Simulated assay, not measured.
Amino acid sequence: MRIIGKQEVEDMAVGAAVLASGGGGDPYIGKLMALQAIEEYGPFEMVTLDELDDDAWVCASHMLGAPTVLVEKVPNGLEGIGAVDALEARFGKKFDAIMPLEAGGLNSLLPFQVAAAKGVPIVDADGMGRAFPELRHVTWTLFDVPACPAAVCDEKGDTVVIEAVDNEWAERLARNVAITTGGSVFMADYAMTGAQAKKTSIPGTSTYCEVVGRTIREAHEAGGDPIPVILDLLKGKELFRGKLDDVSRRTVGGFVRGYAHFEGIEGYHGRTCEIEFQNEHLIARSDGEVLCSAPDLIAVLDAETALPITTEALKYGARGVLVGIPVHEHWRTPRGLEIAGPRYFGYDIDYVPVEER
């Protein structure tokens, strides 16, 4: 077990936003919620999958909806707790630990606040190793772990318990609840035993987020350029450097959809690059050439600070370094590509690992 304090939270917030591929919610909001929880409950307790008892009862905690909504619809801190309370009432027993659904600015840190309020540890693992748009985009789906029963809670305290036939329908029903309640909700789902979590989850995600954030911070403190260091750590690839000259965002069907267009700078003068997103970045193209596509990660890092820029924070004139990052091997299997590859998102191309492009 590790004790997680304020500095670890600060580093995790940055690292999680890098691994979120542009999505996962506002890292600033997630960080504030986690820091406030430390003030209220003390430092967090985090356990590894190996430290989790096989018969432990765990669930995922997260936000679902359009990240741009959170700019105005700021969480009050009770939604995630209310969702877990509702799911515990549905099962008639308490959870022994809480686990993040994904690596995302908000969704990596929200579960820490929920776990602290419930008086249980957080598990250093998740179901994505990155952020994806849909509820079903988790390794738990690949191993046939059901999302339901699932509980949804909004900022007013309204709760809905979803009993869906499969994870695809769980996504559809939960997304419609989010749309009805203003574009975002908080959920508790994917209840499973410790033994199931060990078999089906991606281990060490929270620690990995912390390492990424700490690496950026320490590079700044040493007066160096963090981007080469981050590329080496993540085994990533620089895709493009450019100035954002056009961005379009719209909230449709409970997602933020749109594109960002970059005009090349430095060694990329005379070229352009466009990324398309559905909450998360899905594909990057330069002058017709695909540079990277889902399920690999596409991160936009500030050219000066190397801090990640989320889809809702993309603004005209921003200078960014686009980075492609290899995804966890689970997502490169035939089943993983079936539900999270380029064709799932409507792109008629074969998946090519970013390191092979």
Results as ranks from 00 to 15, higher is better:
Pro228Ala: 08
Asp166Trp: 11
Phe132Lys: 14
Arg2Cys: 09
Ala131Thr: 02
Gly80Ile: 05
Leu297Ile: 14
Cys273Pro: 03
Asn279Glu: 01
Ala219Asp: 00
Trp140Gly: 10
Pro342Leu: 10
Gly127Cys: 15
His261Arg: 12
Leu64Lys: 06
Thr139Cys: 12
Gly42Tyr: 03
Met192Thr: 07
Tyr208Met: 13
Arg335Cys: 08
Trp57Gln: 12
Asp225Cys: 08
Glu79Pro: 07
Pro308Val: 06
Leu337Met: 12
Pro326Glu: 05
Val323Asn: 07
Val252Lys: 14
Phe91Ser: 01
Ala313Thr: 02
Ala318Val: 11
Thr251His: 03
Gly317Phe: 05
Lys31Leu: 15
Thr193Asp: 11
Ala66Tyr: 05
Leu135Glu: 00
Glu289Asn: 09
His281Tyr: 12
Pro149Asp: 06
Leu52Ser: 09
Leu301Trp: 04
Val9Phe: 03
Met99Arg: 07
His62Gln: 09
Lys94Trp: 01
Ala222Asp: 03
Gly242Ser: 07
Lys237Arg: 07
Ala178Leu: 06
Leu173Trp: 09
Gly104Gln: 02
Pro67Leu: 07
Gly341Ile: 03
Asp246Cys: 10
Met187Asn: 03
Tyr259Lys: 12
Val114Met: 13
Val212Gln: 02
Ala56Glu: 12
Pro27Gln: 11
Leu35Gln: 06
Leu35Tyr: 09
Tyr344Asn: 13
Ala191Asn: 11
Gly182Asn: 15
Pro308Met: 05
Val327Phe: 01
Gly254Asp: 01
Glu45Ile: 13
Asp50Ala: 09
Val69Asn: 12
Val256Tyr: 01
Gly77Asn: 04
Tyr316Cys: 05
Glu155Thr: 05
Phe95Gln: 14
Glu266Leu: 14
Ala174Tyr: 04
Lys93Asn: 12
Ser108Val: 09
Asp245Asn: 15
Tyr28Phe: 11
Lys6Glu: 15
Glu304Ile: 10
Glu356Gly: 00
Gly258Trp: 06
Thr139Lys: 11
Ile309Thr: 15
Gln113Arg: 14
Ala86Leu: 10
Ile298Phe: 02
Gly341Phe: 06
Ala56Asp: 10
Thr68Asp: 09
Phe143Gly: 10
Asp246Lys: 13
Pro43Met: 07
Gly242Ala: 14
Arg285Trp: 00
Asp350Trp: 03
Pro121Cys: 05
Leu70Ser: 11
Pro100Asn: 14
Phe44Gly: 05
Lys199Cys: 11
Phe95Glu: 02
Asp189Leu: 09
Val69Gln: 06
Ala303Gly: 01
Val165Arg: 13
Lys118Tyr: 00
Ala125Lys: 13
Arg172Leu: 13
Glu72Thr: 15
Val300Gln: 02
Pro27Asn: 04
Leu314Ser: 04
Pro334Asp: 15
Ala34Arg: 01
Gln278Asp: 00
Gln36Met: 11
Phe277Tyr: 09
Pro228Asn: 07
Phe186Ser: 03
Val177Ala: 07
Leu307Cys: 13
Glu155Met: 04
Leu322Val: 13
Tyr208Asn: 12
Arg250Pro: 00
Leu52Cys: 14
Asp246Glu: 13
Leu110Ala: 14
Glu304His: 04
Asn76Arg: 07
Gln196Tyr: 10
Leu19Gln: 05
Thr159Arg: 08
Glu276Cys: 01
Met63Arg: 07
Phe112Asn: 06
Glu356Tyr: 08
Asn176Tyr: 01
Pro146Met: 13
Gly22Cys: 06
Pro342Gln: 06
Val185Tyr: 07
Lys73Thr: 09
Trp140Thr: 11
Thr200Ser: 15
